[in-house]
């Protein structure tokens, strides 16, 4: 059994080492600005369909959200223009190295969270928590039996705390 676990460990290490070598440098301000320009532009486009008006008044339910989206849009454009000027003047820009290994780890973690949510639709909170907790320990490659026992006990205690003490009807 131990040999089998060691083999799996080696296999994961090999994949990890391969992924670690792949990374890209991202100009964070440029990408961040474009992201917020897109988000604010789409949301501004959706305003008429999402905030319907039945008044001709000057100050309406649209005034504030539209103002905020315009602020996001204008300042994102300012950020982008600063980046363009920096490129033209060949000035130093802020870059961040995004590692493929980190992003794969993030994706696995996020998928585990979604799996936990999906399990709650089909089973109860305590059972879902135990399964999720064990999967998280596997993700962290924990080999200590005590950690697994603690997680199982914690899942039961948290479930009971919310249900019996706080009177919350958990799924």
């Amino acid at each position: 059994m131990n040999k089998f676990i060691e083999k799996i460990d080696d296999f994961i290490d090999k994949i990890g080492n391969k992924l670690e070598k792949h990374s890209i440098k991202v100009p964070i301000n440029t990408v961040g600005a474009i992201l917020f320009i897109l988000v604010s532009a789409i949301l501004l486009y959706l305003v008429p369909s999402q905030i319907k008006l039945n008044t001709t008044s000057q100050i309406t339910a649209r005034t504030f959200p539209v103002l905020m989206l315009r602020i996001v849009l204008i300042f994102s454009i300012v950020l982008l223009i600063k980046e363009i000027i920096a490129i033209i003047r060949k000035k130093e820009r802020e870059f961040k190295e995004i590692s493929l290994l980190v992003e794969v780890r993030f994706l696995i973690l996020f998928c585990l969270l979604i799996l936990f949510l999906l399990m709650l639709y089909f089973t109860n909170f305590i059972l879902s928590s135990i399964i999720f907790g064990v999967l998280m320990l596997v993700y962290f490659r924990s080999k200590r039996i005590s950690s697994y026992i603690i997680i199982i006990i914690a899942a039961i205690l948290i479930g009971l705390l919310f249900q019996k003490v706080l009177h919350v009807r958990l799924p």
């Binding site: 949510l117 709650l120 909170f125 999720f132 962290f140 924990s142 950690s147 997680i151 914690a154 479930g159």
Partner: peptide, 15 residues
Amino acid sequence: PVEVLTPIIVMFCFA
């Protein structure tokens, strides 16, 4: 260890 704390934090968050 963080590996034990992290799932417990998530359980609290979801509940």
